[in-house]
Structures are given as structure tokens and as C-alpha cells.
Design a protein around this nucleic acid. Structure first.
Lengths: 388, 388
DNA sequence: ACAGCAGCTGAAAACGTTTACAGATATTGC
DNA sequence: GCAATATCTGTAAACGTTTTCAGCTGCTGT
């Protein structure tokens, strides 16, 4: 009787001499007579009672858990997202379940389907490719999903997109504006959404500045530091060396930067380098990378908020799928600007935090996370400032 | 009748014309008559049935979830751990719950206590400080816990430790062996376990090489890139400039490296720099950082395995608390070695992966994760190799 | 053809909680 | 002091699953 496993509502009821219903009510702060409250609370603390969350979930139909699935936690972009998502969801009382899919399609689909097992109340998915199967499975998702990434318009799922096209263009414009003419592009796999979009932005901006696209200046490889280094070495050895290079993400750009150092090139004098994502890595290398902030942190926050809004039923049904796009922003640092002031970077508030983050999301459908969105947003920015 | 929410075992039973017990048996592969199996499986797929994991957890008493709690996912060391833990636990069918505590003691304690709510079956905790409250709460933990970090001997909890003392010593020895005499040390907060240990290793090794400790060469700040940069600038401006610096982690070392670049110093000729942790950041900067691998990935893997062993009941009770220590290993790169071959770093298998990872754990109590430990270990190493 | 038996099957209990309902108290108004 | 009412309490059902137990069916051997 006394010690059959951890204390339950029943053990409390026995010890306090009341019914389990009264115990539950007291524990949940519903009205009860003062001495009943006293007896129950006494018994509960004496037994060291902790409510069984599983039983509560079963009864209540919600687990207070959310899932975030991305391809690889090793990428700093996802780390930034995780941090922001975590910050938002935890204050709402949700736990966060992490899922690395290694970009295996079948794994990603399984994650969406696993919403049906009621393990978590909602899902934030950050796929790198969108296949017809994705669309199919998202349409039949057993719970609310928010996708970080681009999604066809007819899929009834909220999405938070990056504008990598304009982002890549921003970078190219910056390079062109500072007098660069042979701008190379080191891309990841072109059959991914970011891969195609960033390339498109690159080509568009080249054209707009009267620069002829040159296949010899393009490389497509995988997203990673070593890949960036090798691609850059290859470019440098190819005879027609570039005077600037755009990496499709910071890892590629950092790899390119290492290759340049190895060859004894001066950055930015001999070679200007720009990354994308403005992840922690951009501030890690030397010189610090100019990078395009595609709003990963903002997208993480927004996705989390949109999901919470769905869960709270705060979204009118006339709005089946909301689409938000984070505006890209160029952050100039030493890898393109020889006069860059390094002291500014490590000040407690980073340069780009001064931009009105809350307002930089342009909703295509409607204001997405309005209302309480702006206040927490500006709050978060301070947090993320300095010494991580 | 038909559509009251998602399909359950009951809906299947109705549709198939059998009892819920039979449905459950078929679904779990327990013996049943062929035509019963057929009917049930048909109904299940037609309804798109997915078993409710919460109900299963309640009945089974286990959630198939584990929790990993660390102070901040933004630190690459923890990212490495998360990745390894995830890899181990997911193959065992466990989901991973992530918890950033921001190093708030009360938060860490709450995580341990929350084991009582049965939300997860076990916990891997990576605290940065160990207070008496930690000990107290760990002793009464409601489920199996593995701590990544140092723990007093009498706490009945498995622990996987880093040997930062020898690790820091390794670094200092390397610097001394290459002719450095004024070796500075940029530390994080000294009231943390890593902070005190790494300092101790630094001082010990100095003494062993006949180098007098010089308070003017020590800085204690917070663990972070900006902090490292500022401390280094301060050292350089202090008049008595060092000819080498050891950062208590890679972030501090990378910050120091940036400061050196800013001042126009050549690395390693004018200033040799060593980091600790051998995280991704060590390979991100220029020149690549010499760093001490304290086995974060190995510790993550080992902790996960130890936890799974506890959960499987595979640990004899005569072994209440196991203690394992990962052996530190110095990884020399360009920040201390001018002749460093950069091509070796980005080969698909990183330099340090050639070491026998599986054997580098020296158990103080007994062989901890022996048996199936070595095979998965070597398997993981390949995976983590190149383009992340 | 019938006893014996193996194999399936269904009813029911259990996991720990919340909650609708009805019954029991305590409180108020006169 | 009594009726009417407000407040509290306990019983029981429910969430969706697994599993025990007893009963049933159909088979085998003679």
C-alpha cells in the first residue's frame, strides 16, 4: 500500500483521508474547504508528489511538447533557430523535442506523420528540399505545422520564408558597388531550395550590374567548410581567378576564406568574401565575414509564435495558411571592407541589432505575428547580443 | 461514431468486427488467426491509424524520451554533444528533449526534479557548477541520470568527466616545447568546474617547465568570443605582452586570435594560440586553432550509452555509480605550428579521428561502455568527418 | 464420436489523471 | 428553527492503450 512506486493522487487521497477528486481539485487550485486544502497539501509535500505528466497528457489531449526538425544540428543556422524557438516555446510552458533528419526525405516525412502519435502538439519543420511527398504528407498532418522554408501556395500550412533571392542579390550588389568585377559563387547542391534561390539571386544581380555570368566562376558542392575551401582552391587554380566570392552560406564562405589565406591572398584587398546567413561563424573567422542576415533567428521566433497561435486557437479559420517572409539584411564586415572597425563587432550590442527586427518581417498574406509579437522581438535582440 | 477525432484502437475494432484486445494483439504482432490479422490490418490502414504514444506511455510506464540539459545550445561543445547523444539514443528508439538552462542553478535543479513527472525516462545533465543543492537533488532523482562533468564520489549517479587539468597541461607543454616562455591564460569564470580545473592544469604545467606563474598574464572573464578578444587586447596593451596564449575554450582563443590580427601580430610567429575543446570553431578561424580535444563527442556518446544501459537494466546493482574520464588529446594546427599542412585538415577524415576513440576512455571504476561500445564508436567517427 | 488440448478471442482491469454529476454538508434568510 | 440555497465532496466515467484471465472454437488422436 505504502510504497508501490512513486506517489500518486491515490496515495495522497489515502493519507489525507479524502477522495482523489478532492486531491485533484486542491492541486489544481479549484475551490475547497480550507482544512481539506491543508490536509491535501500536507500529504502531497510529505510524499514528495509530482504529477504524472503522461496521465495529464492523456486526459487533456495535449502534451505541452513541440517538435523541431531540421537536417543537422551541426549547422549554426539551425542552432540559432533552436535557441530562439526554445526561448519562445519555453515561456509558453512547452518542452522542445529535437529531431535531426540528416536531410533524409523519408525521415522528414516520418517526422510529420509522427504528429499522429500525439507525442507532441505541434511541429516546426525546416526542410531543405520540398518534394511532392512533402506536400502530400503536410496536407494530411495530424496537427499544426509551421514550415521554415518555401512552400507551394496551395499547401494549407503556415510558412516562414527567407528571401534568399534578394539576399544573394544584396551581397552581389555590395561587391559590385565596391568595384568588384569577377564575382565568383560557391553554392551548395543546386537541387535544394536555398541552392536554386541563391543562385538565382546571384545571376539576377550580376545582370543588373552589367556583369556577364561566367560558368567558370561558379561552383556547386555541398554546404560545408571543407567543401568551400576546396571549391575556392579550385577557383584560384583555374587560371581566371575572381576578385570576389559569394558563399551560399557562411560555412562555404569561411572555407573560401581559408583557401585564400593558404594562397597568401589578402582579404579583402585581393579577394573580397561574402557569406550568407550571418551565423556565429561570420564573426568567428578572420577577417570577420560580411554576410547576409537571412533572419534565421527571426524566422525561428516567428515560426514558434505562429505555432503557438495555432495551438491557442488564436488564428481565425478564414486564414488557413499564413506566409511570412523575413527581409534580408546585409551586414558588412572586414572581409569586404578594409576600413571595418573591429571594435564595433564585439560591443555588447551587435551592429545589426539596431535594425528594427520586429518590423523587418513583411507578411505577404497578413501581419503574421502581430500584437504581442513586437515586444518580445525587441526583447530577444538584447539577449542575443554579446558573449555566447 | 465514425469520426470522433483521430482513429483509435476502438474504431478499428468496430470496423473490423473484433475486440480491442485482438486489435492490440495484431498490432503488436502477437499470435492471431490469419483472417483476424487481415481484417484488423485492413481496418487500420483504411483509417490511417497511428498508435497514441501517450496512452502507450501511461500503460507501459516509459515514454521513450530522454532529456539533455546544458547551459546554452549556442556553445559548439554542446552542439557536438547533442549530435552524438541524438545519434545514440535515436537508434535505440528514444526521442530527445532539449533543455537550455542558461546556467541558472534553479533551472538545472528543476530539470532534475522534473524527472518525477515521468516526461522522460532519463536525463543527461551537463552542469557548469556543482552546488550542494545539485548533490542533494541528484541523490533523490526520480530516474536514471548521467552527469557530464565532475561529481563528488559519494553521489550515486553515473558521470562522464573531462580531464581538463591534464588537457590544459598538454597545451602548455606544447607551447613550452615550441619555445614559448610568456604563456598567457585567458580563462572563463573561475568559480566554475572547468574554470578552476583548466587554471590548475595551466599553473601545474608552468611549474613543471620552470616557468614562473605571472598574474599579469592571467585573465578571467566569461566564456565567449568577445570576452576573449577584449582580454587579449588588454593583455597586449598591458606592456608585458605574451608570446603565447591559452584560451580556456575555443571561443576565448578565437577571440584572442582576432585581437592579435587587429594588432597586426603574426600567428603563430609573434603569438601562438591554443584553444580547448577542439570544437568546430577551432577549424573555423585563421589560422586554424591548435586545440585540446577534451572528448566532448566521446563524452556525449558515452553518457548516452550509460544512460541506455541503466534503462535497459543492464547495469548490475553492485555498481551504483560509474565514473568515466575521457582522455584529452592535443590537436596541433596552424595557430601554433607555422609548418602546419592545411590540406590535411579538410581531408574527409579529420586528423584526430585516426586516434582509437573507443579506447581513449579510461574508466576509474570499471570499463564503462564496453562490449558494443567500440563498434558504434568507430562508426560515428566517419560520419562526423567532413562537410557539416 | 468424443476427450483432450492448443490456440484464439473477448471482457475487464489497469496505468494516473481530470471532470460531470449527484449527493452531502454548511450557510443564509426569514 | 426551518426551508432554500450555496458550497463542497465523493463516485464514476473517461482518455487510449496493454495484458490477464477465463472461455470459446476448432483441431488432433484414438
Amino acid at each position: 500500500m505504502s510504497d508501490g512506486g512513486p506517489p500518486t493522487i491515490v496515495s495522497i487521497a489515502e493519507r489525507a483521508g479524502v477522495s482523489i477528486a478532492s486531491v485533484s481539485r486542491v492541486l489544481n487550485g479549484v475551490g475547497a474547504r480550507p482544512d481539506t486544502v491543508r490536509k491535501v497539501e500536507r500529504a502531497a509535500t510529505e510524499l514528495g508528489y509530482v504529477p504524472n505528466a503522461v496521465a495529464q497528457s492523456l486526459k487533456g489531449g495535449r502534451t505541452k511538447q513541440l517538435t523541431f526538425a531540421m537536417q543537422d544540428i551541426g549547422n549554426p543556422v539551425y542552432v540559432a533557430m533552436v535557441r530562439e524557438i526554445q526561448a519562445v516555446t519555453r515561456t509558453a510552458g512547452y518542452r522542445l523535442l529535437l529531431h535531426s533528419t540528416d536531410a533524409v526525405i523519408e525521415d522528414e516525412l516520418a517526422v510529420v506523420r509522427s504528429l499522429g502519435d500525439r507525442t507532441s502538439d505541434g511541429l516546426i519543420l525546416c526542410p531543405i528540399r520540398i518534394t511532392p511527398e512533402h506536400v502530400e504528407v503536410l496536407k494530411n498532418a495530424a496537427g499544426p505545422v509551421v514550415v521554415i522554408g518555401s512552400l507551394p501556395g496551395d499547401v494549407p500550412v503556415d510558412a516562414v520564408q527567407a528571401d534568399s533571392i534578394s539576399g544573394a542579390a544584396l551581397a552581389v550588389e555590395h561587391l559590385a558597388a565596391t568595384g568588384r568585377r569577377r564575382i565568383a559563387f560557391i553554392n551548395g547542391p543546386v537541387d535544394t531550395v536555398p541552392g536554386t534561390n541563391r543562385r538565382q539571386g546571384y545571376l539576377t544581380a550580376l545582370a543588373e550590374h552589367g556583369l556577364a555570368p561566367d560558368p567558370a566562376l561558379e561552383r556547386a558542392t555541398s554546404f560545408g567548410l571543407a567543401a568551400g575551401r576546396e571549391a575556392m582552391l579550385d577557383l584560384l587554380d583555374s587560371g581566371a581567378a575572381p576578385d570576389a566570392v559569394l558563399g551560399a552560406n557562411d560555412q562555404l564562405a569561411l572555407g573560401a576564406s581559408q583557401a585564400a589565406h593558404e594562397r597568401g591572398l589578402r582579404i579583402p584587398e585581393d579577394l573580397a568574401i561574402t557569406g550568407m546567413d550571418d551565423s556565429d561563424l561570420a564573426r568567428a573567422g578572420w577577417p570577420p565575414l560580411t554576410s547576409v542576415d537571412l533572419g534565421s533567428e527571426e524566422r525561428g521566433r516567428t515560426a514558434a509564435r505562429m505555432l503557438l497561435e495555432r495551438l491557442a486557437g488564436a488564428v481565425p479559420d478564414e486564414q488557413p495558411a499564413r506566409r511570412t517572409t523575413a527581409a534580408p539584411r546585409l551586414v558588412v564586415r572586414g572581409s569586404t571592407d578594409a576600413a571595418y572597425d573591429h571594435a564595433s563587432a564585439s560591443a555588447s550590442v551587435p551592429a545589426h541589432a539596431s535594425a528594427p527586427t520586429g518590423a523587418s518581417a513583411s507578411a505577404s498574406a497578413s501581419a503574421p505575428a502581430s500584437g504581442h509579437a513586437s515586444a518580445p522581438a525587441s526583447g530577444q535582440v538584447g539577449v542575443r547580443g554579446e558573449g555566447r
